[in-house]
Amino acid sequence: MGIRPVYVIGTCDTKEEELTYACARIRAVGGRAVLVDVGTSAPGKAPDVTAAEVAAHHPEGAGAVMGGTDRGHAVAAMAEALTHWLLAQPDIGAVLGLGGSGNTALVTQAMRALPVGVPKLMVSTVASGQVAPYVGASDLGMVYSVTDVAGLNAISRKVIGNAAHAAAAMALNPVPEGERDLPGLGITMFGVTTDCVTRLRAQLDGVFEAYVFHATGTGGAAMEKLADSGLVAALLDVTATEVADYLVGGVMPCTPDRYGAPARTGLPWVGSVGAVDMVNFGARDTVPAKFEGRQFLIHNPQITLMRTTPEENTAIGHFIAEKLNLCHGPVSLFLPLGGVSAVDVPGMPFHDPQADEALFTAIRETFRATDTRRLTELPHAINDPAFADAMAAEIRRMTA
């Protein structure tokens, strides 16, 4: 196939000098560079792919991107067009973006749509701050530009050059596929569901290669990103605490797309409602004042847990069941009637049968069972060995 190119992406109307320099550095070390212009105000002098070519990939055509007077709208439309354009390229060796906040938002949106494993680097003026909106659940690398991406100087040449060399090296030296005999299995875990996941891993050792994701907001999204990328064969979604944070206002929320991957892909999904007894916050003094008077558990100096109420559990149950109802592949949801976490069992601080029953009732009322969509209620707590054994047996049955 030859050398796969590094797609160097930026706005040639304002950053052409820096982009051209990055391309030169890639070529200097033996790589192949393709300069892609995503500027919306004026055409670049000599990109390999013009902004008009990219804009033509917008679902509504180039006119939806070019020619308007609203820069914010144009940038958002170009980001959508670039996403479609980039996904249509069959030979990506790496993607390298350069720019400020606007171009960072534009280019990283398209990068996030690429499968995990495709090299992605973004040299950005905002890379030293809160980068979660740009990175999401992808394997996207952010490089702080140190000086603004506004002309070449002794600093920017080094930073951009280093990033260009790194992108070239990744394109020139693709990681070989491992001889993975076992199918991948995505598993979600939290501290209070660890015993369940540990036993599941032991029960399924030799059957699957387990990929465990810490359910901290990005954990569930990362697992679903792998599902969308075709990198797992099934999902063992034990832990749903991100849903509680999303609905109640914690610091580790999922997105509205949680459980979207099994609906899109039809992958076998076996899951439970682990850790929905808690909403996660930072240090105790960071908990919003509106929650004063609630039941808290100090997990450590940086993490405070808040017990969910019956009303909140009703909303959680409806959310999960409604999402799973959209899945047309094999789905099996297990309810641990003895407690949804290690601290939701008799004698532990979050034991609240009324709140748990509100959760289970909401799921029973909303979940639509079919020949391929099952609801199983067990008398065990989620960390009881028998509960993990039942889930392990089900994922084996589904994937046999």
Rank of each mutant, 00 (worst) to 15 (best):
V6Y: 03
V8I: 12
I9F: 08
G10W: 00
T11A: 15
T14R: 07
A24L: 10
I26L: 07
I26D: 04
R32W: 01
R32M: 07
V34S: 09
L35T: 02
T40F: 02
S41A: 11
P43T: 04
K45D: 08
K45A: 12
K45I: 08
T50I: 06
P59I: 09
P59H: 13
G61C: 07
A62Q: 10
G68V: 06
H73S: 11
L82E: 00
H84M: 05
L87N: 15
Q89T: 00
D91Q: 12
A94F: 03
V95P: 02
L96E: 02
L98M: 05
G99A: 10
G99Q: 05
G100M: 09
N103A: 14
T104G: 14
A105C: 06
T108C: 08
T108R: 03
M111K: 02
R112Y: 05
A113K: 08
G117D: 07
K120Q: 13
L121E: 06
S124G: 13
V126T: 15
P133Y: 08
D148Y: 06
A150Q: 10
G151N: 07
A154K: 14
G161C: 04
N162A: 14
A163C: 10
A166E: 05
A169I: 00
L172K: 14
N173L: 04
N173D: 12
V175Q: 13
V175S: 11
P176Q: 11
G178W: 04
D181Q: 12
P183R: 06
P183S: 10
I187N: 02
T188Y: 07
C196Y: 04
A202P: 08
V207Q: 12
F208G: 01
V212I: 09
G219T: 03
A221D: 10
A222F: 03
M223K: 15
L231Y: 05
A234C: 12
A234H: 08
L235W: 06
Y246R: 15
D257L: 09
D257N: 15
Y259P: 00
Y259N: 09
A261N: 02
A261V: 04
P262K: 07
G266R: 05
L267F: 08
S272E: 02
G274S: 13
A275K: 01
A275C: 15
T286L: 10
T286K: 14
A289N: 13
K290S: 11
G293M: 07
L305F: 05
R307I: 00
A321P: 03
L324Y: 00
N325A: 10
V331D: 01
S332V: 01
L335F: 09
L337T: 10
G338W: 05
G339I: 00
V340C: 13
A342S: 14
V343H: 12
D344P: 01
P349R: 05
Q354D: 11
E357H: 13
A358Q: 01
L359H: 04
L359A: 01
L359K: 00
R364W: 04
E365F: 04
T366S: 15
R368L: 08
A369E: 09
L375C: 05
L375K: 02
T376Q: 11
I382V: 09
I382A: 05
N383P: 07
P385N: 14
P385R: 12
A388F: 01
A392M: 08
A393D: 10
I395L: 12
R397P: 03
R397Q: 09
